[in-house]
Amino acid sequence: MSRPRTFAPPAGARAYALATARGEFAVIDAPAAAGAEPRGIALLLPGFTGSKEDFNPLHEALGARGYRTVAVDGRGQFESDGPADDESAYAQEELARDVLAQAAAVGDGRPVHLLGHSLGGQIARAAVLLDHTPFRSLTLMSSGPAQISVPQQQRVKLLRDALAVMPMAEVWEAMRAMDAPEELDEGGVDDQEDPEDLRRRWLGNKPAQLLAAGRQLCTEPDRVGELAAVPLPFHVLSGARDDTWPLPLLDDMALRLRAHRTVIEGAEHSPNSERPAPTAEALAAFWDRVNG
């Protein structure tokens, strides 16, 4: 779980409900900076228990490089609606089709750069495998080739077991007491974070979405071979340490994809919030190369 220091949209960005062919999705939409040459559009998908706000630290720097960035809450995630108790609504293919609809709405006929963080990377991959034509490139940020590591699977199982018997508010209190048994970053809560914002985000998630996502993280098959056959430029970006998908797995995945590889020093599972400046620079440099 990325932990944004502020949930307020960056200066110049808009928070609104994006209308798509598959319903409305809450987004933060940040334009390219005034005076910057427009270079393209990027659609940003957050990870498990995360939200669109996880990308707040990146918008300004990417806008200065000419990129409009649109971060989205997936179905049943924080401020996007979804059923509370129907896990089938959160099957991976359903979420992938949501991404195709989001890309169509954001791009308005133009291909967009797609980025998925952690679970968002698995969903982004599934969308590209359904139809790659709405996309200009795919960046997998801290998102590996298959299921998460065994220690993280054990943490996710604790969370899923708790959700089965406890209300969301009680699960949140238990997670705080246990330092969050979920896909989390190292280091605990940052002094500049607002715990109430994090709690509000947690309570905005639909339980069925969390249960389905947790199952997906623990059972995802290796689809790198399928993805490598897709004619898109790929980028594998991560921190220098990751307990969810260890770096050797990410390095090997990048080789199999013939992908550009970036390691952000000083970052772990969430380089977007831990080291936003070099992360934004790496993303913009990759997209610039793709754009030619």
Results as ranks from 00 to 15, higher is better:
L237V: 13
V230P: 10
G225M: 00
A208M: 10
T262N: 11
M253E: 11
A212W: 03
M253L: 11
E226S: 13
L210Q: 12
V224A: 11
G214E: 02
A208P: 13
L250S: 11
T219W: 08
D251M: 06
H260D: 15
P221R: 04
E226D: 15
L217M: 15
S238N: 13
V236D: 14
G239W: 02
D252C: 07
L255P: 02
A240I: 00
A228Y: 00
K206A: 15
D251Y: 11
A254E: 12
R241G: 10
L232V: 02
F234A: 05
E226Y: 03
L237I: 14
V224L: 09
L217V: 08
C218T: 15
A240K: 00
R215A: 13
T219F: 07
T262Q: 10
R215M: 03
A228N: 02
A259Y: 00
D222L: 09
R261T: 02
V263L: 11
V230Q: 03
P221L: 07
E226P: 12
R258E: 11
P248A: 10
D243Q: 11
T244W: 12
A254Q: 10
L227A: 06
A229V: 02
T244Y: 05
C218I: 06
A228P: 08
P246K: 00
M253Q: 14
R223L: 14
V236P: 15
K206C: 12
G239V: 01
T262W: 03
D242C: 06
G214C: 03
L232F: 06
L211I: 14
T262D: 15
R258T: 05
R215T: 14
Q209L: 12
A259P: 11
P231F: 01
T244M: 13
R258K: 13
L232C: 04
D222R: 09
D243H: 13
H235Q: 13
L227K: 05
R258M: 01
F234S: 09
A254Y: 08
T244N: 14
